[in-house]
């Protein structure tokens, strides 16, 4: 199998995630888009791991999976906090601090 088919799939997912992060207003949706990006990284890592026949990439992917979970947890907590104080999970309403 071509290495690039994995890598380009991954690049596509990554960029889709980038689009979602930039264009979505709802905090939860933004976090979902972040997950897309992190998954793209994992596909890269596992594909490379198979390509070079080294387990390091898979270990790396495991770390990424774990930490992504932690990040999402914290992120949702912060979005929840904002929802509670502003009564909306929309990120474009959060613009008190600027300049």
């Amino acid at each position: 199998m071509a290495l690039n088919q994995f890598l380009i799939l991954s690049a596509f997912l990554f960029c889709t995630g980038v689009y979602g992060v930039l264009a979505r207003r709802n905090g939860v949706l933004v976090l979902m888009s972040v997950e897309l990006m992190l998954n793209a990284v994992n596909i890269n890592l596992v594909a490379f791991s198979a390509f070079v026949r080294d387990v390091g990439g898979q270990i790396f992917a495991l770390f990424v999976i774990t930490i992504a979970a932690a990040e999402v947890g914290v992120g949702l907590a912060i979005v929840l906090l904002i929802y509670r104080n502003l009564d909306s999970p929309d990120l474009d309403r959060v613009d008190q601090l600027k300049g």
Binding site: L22, D92, V94, L97, K98
Partner: peptide, 10 residues
């Protein structure tokens, strides 16, 4: 520095 976090991300 518009204050909008997604502008920063952009």
């Amino acid at each position: 520095q518009s204050g909008r976090v997604q502008r920063y991300a952009l």
